[in-house]
Design a protein around this nucleic acid. Structure first.
Lengths: 339, 339
DNA sequence: CTTGACATCCGAAACGTTTTGGATTATAAT
DNA sequence: ATTATAATCCAAAACGTTTCGGATGTCAAG
């Protein structure tokens, strides 16, 4: 069906080896035959079989990425931006990207890893939303398979990661709320099996403590990072006998949900209640009112972890196996002084 | 490095053929040797090389998907949901998904298609956001390569697509606005090289005409489907001498931007100005106020086009090569009666 | 005229599978 | 005892590349 080296060889009257070497730019083929070969390749419309090459070279020039999706209706602007960063960086290095969508900690997720890694479908894996004691990381480490994680894990001092200092991020946000005079500050957390959730929660607690406020379990709720969960949690928080005057939230999507809940209760966000997010997805700047949030450079993160992985795969030395980025607090109108 | 059939063969003392057939479940291998082989495979940790299989079987069980991204900071909830639909359906059929991110109509996009198709990296392609006279479709048709498009194109009566009736969608939305008493209805369109933009625009025009309103160029602006563009367009529309009392928008993200512009001008959306979107991304229901929009089942669309493509690849008969889904108008609070 | 160097080419093996078309042996039927 | 049949097995080719280690021919230097 498709045109192969053999076809060109037959057409020109030369061996397959010579065709391969002519096309490969080796200098042990005469200029005139090279020309003939190039012309024939052009005429016949030759394009090398990537699969055959992969088999021969024993590498795929492909990186694998399993996106953790919660539920069927999955729509997270965070991931589309991360994916763009990863994809563009991969393309820059002529790497392809193999993507799967699986719900976290499911048998399907494990199966996907087996297939990509053990089936040698990819040269390296990108792991995101690391969990404490993450089975994906143990799997990869056990097989000595190249990977880079976005997010730290339990005992991972010998595996490469890039992470954002969520502790400091949330510390800044809560500190900011305290400076605004808030004394009753709630927190909507991410599920605590995610490592970043622990860091951010601790940042919240440390800021409270330093501000002389005491940690109150009643003021901490957990949501699965969706707008809907943020909405529900905020409703419950604002229905308390002594409701909080400020709510820090573990990500922007839930913060948008929290804002909606506040609106629904007739509160003006930024005046009656302060709300902060985390991520700075594009929508955050465009919320109503614009959302005060902790910015992490999502696109850049995608680019960087992809770059790190490719360096590991190609054997280039990595200047740093552990990167912690500092997030920055972005002040907007959703957080105002306490009444 | 990795364990191969040959390793098992050597270990058990049998030929590679027999190992392959034992593992493949053929019945021409004795039960006792099969057991020995299975045990050895287990012990040695055998997993077949996907690449070698692909080369031999001349298919990849992979489908390709090039996501059109505008600019580096790309973050579209639409695509993450579509991707989930595609990815899950692919997984259900044991297909992998190869994803690229390229800006539309760029040389890089063309290169990606050459690589995936001519390099036989994938068995079929999914094309989204079809354009009038789409070079991607001509490319695929010329090569007789399996593909399914989300969205119609110019002369594509012989190529499979799934589309949503954008004409009727926008017709419903504008009709709804007219019924609410609006007489000056603006429209924020998508770029007109996208086929769906044409359909929706025509739906807008036809609804106007049927309602006895005349089409006014001044009231139609074009945006690149981002929140920011919707924001800008709405600002310009609302700054007109005779501003519209209602704005229909070609997608939800721009509609959210339009809502923000209206708020900024001190208008209450749903009372002072009516706004409708298109898509019904999850965020639409959670906007403030909730967005009246035309719902297209994004996840389901991803699932369906993926399913169609796999049927084409595997040679199963397709009941219908052209599917038009009817979108439904979802009434929420962003659209109220004219003052 | 021989030798060595260089330019140009190619056969064969390898990558890890699957598949084709027998070969060999044991078993049952005549 | 012979023959047909079934049960097991396997060598080799194929998929489309790349690469190793020569082979061949030409030409200039000795």
């Amino acid at each position: 069906m498709a045109v192969t080296l053999k076809d060109i060889a037959r057409h020109v009257g030369v061996s397959v080896t010579t065709v391969s070497r002519a096309l490969g730019g080796y200098d042990d083929v005469a200029e005139t035959t090279r020309q003939k070969i190039l012309r024939a390749a052009e005429e016949l419309g030759y394009y090398p079989s990537v699969t055959a090459r992969q088999l021969q070279k024993q590498r795929t020039d492909t990186i694998g990425f399993v996106i953790p999706t919660f539920g069927p209706r999955f729509s997270d602007p965070f991931f589309s931006e991360l994916l763009a960063g990863i994809g563009n960086e991969a393309a820059r290095h002529n790497f392809d990207l193999l993507v799967c969508t699986r719900s976290p900690d499911s048998p399907e997720e494990e199966e996907a890893y087996r297939r990509l890694v053990d089936g040698r479908r990819v040269d390296g894996m990108l792991v995101v939303r690391t969990r404490v004691d993450d089975p994906r990381l143990s799997f990869l480490k056990q097989r000595h398979f190249p990977f880079v994680a976005f997010g730290r894990s339990h005992a991972d001092e010998n595996s490469p990661y890039l992470d954002v200092d969520g502790h400091h991020g949330l510390y800044q946000a809560v500190r900011h709320l305290i400076d605004l005079g808030h004394r009753r500050i709630a927190y909507i957390s991410a599920p605590l099996n995610l490592t970043f959730a622990l860091h951010r929660l601790q940042g919240y607690r440390d800021a409270l403590q330093e501000g002389g406020l005491k940690y109150d379990e009643e003021l901490v709720h957990v949501g699965y990072l969706t707008e809907e969960d943020g909405y529900q949690a905020a409703h419950r928080l604002l229905a308390l006998d002594r409701p909080p005057t400020a709510i820090a939230v573990a990500n922007d999507l839930m913060a948008l949900g929290a804002m909606r809940a506040a609106h629904e209760r007739g509160l003006t966000v930024g005046r009656d209640v302060a709300i902060t997010g985390f991520d700075d997805i594009p929508l955050a700047a465009h919320a109503h009112p614009p959302l005060t949030t902790v910015r992490q450079p999502i696109y850049e993160i995608g680019r960087r972890i992809c770059q790190m992985l490719i360096q590991i795969i190609t054997g280039e030395p990595l200047d740093n196996y552990h990167l912690i980025l500092e997030p920055t607090l972005i002040l907007r109108q959703s957080s105002g002084p306490a009444q």
